[in-house]
Design a protein around this nucleic acid. Sequence first.
DNA 1: CGCGCGTTTGACATGACTCAAATGCTGTGG
DNA 2: CCACAGCATTTGAGTCATGTCAAACGCGCG
Lengths: 245, 245
Amino acid sequence: MSNVDNVAPLFKDLADHYVACQDCSLYRFCLPLGLHSRDLQLLDKIIKRSQTYKRGQPLFAAETEFTSLYVVRSGSFKTTISTSNGRDQVTGFYFPGEFIGLDAIHQQTYKSNAKALESSSVCELPFDNLQELGKEMPQLQVQLLTRLSKELAGDKGLMLLLGKKAADEKLATFLLSLSQRFKERGFSAAEFQLSMSRGDIANHLGLAVETVSRLFSRFQDEGLITITGKAIALKDMEKLQSLCE
Amino acid sequence: MSNVDNVAPLFKDLADHYVACQDCSLYRFCLPLGLHSRDLQLLDKIIKRSQTYKRGQPLFAAETEFTSLYVVRSGSFKTTISTSNGRDQVTGFYFPGEFIGLDAIHQQTYKSNAKALESSSVCELPFDNLQELGKEMPQLQVQLLTRLSKELAGDKGLMLLLGKKAADEKLATFLLSLSQRFKERGFSAAEFQLSMSRGDIANHLGLAVETVSRLFSRFQDEGLITITGKAIALKDMEKLQSLCE
DNA sequence: CGCGCGTTTGACATGACTCAAATGCTGTGG
DNA sequence: CCACAGCATTTGAGTCATGTCAAACGCGCG
């Protein structure tokens, strides 16, 4: 049994077969929210439910032509950007219902790399078609605007984390942010799987792998969490929360 | 003579009197770009050209109701977000033609504080009116989307800076980014005024004030820059550039 | 079953922060 | 217009959190 299947991907039921937006279990977190039935069907037609992506497989690469936005359908992804000398920063993790590629709109070029963290699938939204549709569906444009704004606000929070927080505060903030996102999707806020590696977490938080590893150990010793491999349980949310300020 | 007037604010000519979009010297960097003449006039009508803001004066405060987007007309602003225990992070500096408040759309609440860095003025765009207009002007929505995407891309770059760069690389990157933005606006890329304090720069880059001060001195010793007070001249762009990777 | 990589743990080095103090600039009030 | 008060900036010395290097471990995959 592969590592990938070992950890059941989120919303795995959506991975392999066609599901129209209106029947999709992600509907209430997703773009079409608030569209009328007729509009929904039009949107449905431009969505490409593409193949699945295996762990490590790129969804798109930096510096390639921007064609589509993607919404995670099942599994998870990470995005990274790189300096010219090869250092890179994990800019985000993406879970079902979340958009990937929003930062590519303005230059019509992807400026990040996006990779699957586990077996995953996406809904592909060809941007030109989406914009055509947007002309007749203001509500769709509003949704897009809102999504962009939400990611922007999240990134400002990350800037606070990266610029002002100590290592333990960073990790606590990260864990609670994941927890919150799983909770919103109807999963346990206290127990979940970390589909990304320690290296990815460390990179994302601006820390060394060793620091993250040591912190996981310390948090466990202090009774804040239980962690075995990729499975984590948050045991003392209040203390974690108090670490975040 | 006050400090504020000492340093001539950018686009000061726009500060005090009414200028229609089509006559505005910022037109080609601004929202209305690409709108038809008729649409431009409609947009013009919803814009509030509000009073000027003095140094330190808030444009809006975090946790207050979101009503408007703002475009800087003259001068400059900074935005900050805070942890619950009072630490705060400068999330951005804003110059003429740039949008402030885009991260507030999704929750209809400002989540940052915005403050003038010098005597400044803005165009206020009441969001509800803007959305009304957007329904009949897809081009306007596209512009908005593009602006949001651009800021998002910039923030990803800042995450790379905050997470992966050493102090001197951070400062070099910051200086060149300012240089680039001034250049785009038709100003000298090599010589400009730093309207923000050393403290603001340090905070924005995730450094201590002392570190920034020392780096300015070092850069000067090494012939990379000349700096006296708020006036800076970039003397060796290539070396600065090589520090950024 | 064995190789390889991700993870953990330990020892040490160091870049950047903190504390402290001198200096300079700015805005204010006389 | 000048003098003073207060804040911003610079510079120096010492500390510390986190990174780097190194090695052992163990899980997962072929």
